[in-house]
Computed example of a mutant assay.
Amino acid sequence: MTFNEVVDRRNTRSVKWDLTEQLFKDKEILPMWVADMDFQTPKPVIDALVDRASHGIFGYTVTDEAIHSIIKEWLSKRHDWEIQTDWLTYSPGVVPSLHTIVEALTEPGDSILIQTPVYPPFYDVIKKHDRSIVTSSLYLQEGRYEIDFEDFEEKIQNVKAFILCNPHNPVGRVWTKEELQRMADLCTKHDVLIFSDEIHADLIYAGHKHVPMASLSDKVANRTTTCLSPTKTFNIAGLQASYIVTPESEMKKKIDAQFGLQGINMLNTMGVTAIESSYAHGEEWLDELVEVLDSNKELLMKRMHEETDHIQIIEPEGTYLVWMDCRGLGLSHNELKEFMRTKAKVGLNDGASFGKEGEGFMRINIATPPQTLNEGIDRIVEAANNHRGNGSN
């Protein structure tokens, strides 16, 4: 399989493809929303899953020292982060992990800071456990989102914890070591815990480097718990396997105990197989994938810049999710959603679902073969120019 091959995902119970008509009320919608890829998983992973399936028995399955070690090696090689295997806790996914961490390490009534616009489940993992949301808005400057450190410091003084998104979904920033250190110093100064969602850590474009927050120093590590997974990296989200890295032993005990209260103490058989095979044999595929995503990113930016004046692309530094500034269309946000659905006929993520700062924006998924991406761009450009007049550059 090449990254140019279009694989028909319909009738596979795909959330992205099979729920599109139900969600967008139109069977002609091209889905470019939910965060999985239209590329087949690396062949060594498929082979490992087929081999495991051929055994024919799917009993309770452990995450043993071999799995621990392969995660340790991956984080060392890809991210220069040396962890201990006894820091690991396994979970079905990063969102369940965040729910559990919030329950384990904070109390009802505590305040938790997030940097908005941000991944919508961050709001839920705070609100649903009777914690209070405190927001610090990122600001857009010359096509790049920045942290308002004055606001961040003011807000961080009055919270119990901070949920970091790095790389940031949806704005695509890969926070620099200097930015991370500055945030970490403020969290240390005000005794704030850090819950770091780093699920997109492996999907980084040339010129940028992912730095795990907990890798900065022992002092930072001892207040940080990090959520990671190969599922975004290798397109195996449906296998539901992730892990948490918690260096501080008392924090880890509380997290493990909270999982115990939910009856969660192991992964599914195929998830375990996928973690091992993807990290052991997927690196070459991943390097090629990042080149493909980079090419798709450049294609999107070039075509939008050349073919319409009405939509600006916020260039991502990581992830395959791209933030589009659609304010030039002159529509209210509800009108924008309807415009993309009924005029462009493209299924995108609603920018306002990421916070009020996302009004006038939409999120597009570019992890798809270039011919599919081009079709999506064709639809958006044509609709935009018909709406505002053909004001291309």
Rank of each mutant, 00 (worst) to 15 (best):
L286G: 05
Y320G: 06
S69E: 12
E154L: 08
V125G: 00
F162M: 00
K253V: 05
K232C: 12
I156H: 02
S196I: 05
S91Y: 13
V62P: 09
E338D: 15
Q115K: 11
G143Y: 06
V211P: 05
V50G: 04
T308N: 13
Y123F: 15
K160C: 08
N265L: 04
N235K: 02
C187D: 12
R182V: 03
I67T: 11
A201R: 00
G271K: 08
I112N: 04
A280L: 03
R341G: 02
I101F: 00
D151V: 14
A280Y: 03
R388I: 05
E248M: 00
M270A: 15
G260C: 09
L293G: 12
W87T: 10
W175F: 06
D287W: 03
L23M: 13
R78Y: 02
E283F: 00
I67V: 09
S332R: 01
E150F: 14
E306D: 14
R379N: 14
N334C: 07
W33E: 15
G376L: 08
L164G: 00
Y205S: 03
K128C: 04
M32V: 06
H310W: 10
R363C: 14
A161N: 08
F162Y: 12
G358Q: 11
L299R: 04
E21N: 14
M32N: 04
P247S: 01
L186Q: 07
F122H: 11
F152Q: 10
V118A: 08
I156S: 09
I314Q: 10
S111R: 11
S332H: 09
L138D: 11
L286A: 04
G358C: 10
D51R: 05
Q312W: 08
K72E: 06
L286M: 12
D350G: 06
I311D: 11
L336D: 07
T106G: 05
I380M: 07
F259Q: 15
S215D: 10
S242Y: 05
G328E: 14
K16S: 08
H310S: 15
V290T: 03
V322P: 12
T85Y: 00
F122R: 00
R303W: 03
A352I: 11
G263Q: 06
K128Y: 12
S137Q: 04
P247F: 00
Q240R: 07
K155I: 02
I236Y: 07
F3L: 10
R131M: 10
Y145N: 11
Q181Y: 01
I163R: 08
D325Q: 10
L140Q: 13
G328H: 10
T20Y: 07
G56V: 07
T116C: 12
E250N: 14
Y123W: 03
I70N: 00
R363A: 14
F3A: 13
M362P: 03
K252Y: 05
R341N: 10
G351R: 05
L23V: 15
V45M: 12
L105S: 02
A201T: 04
G271A: 06
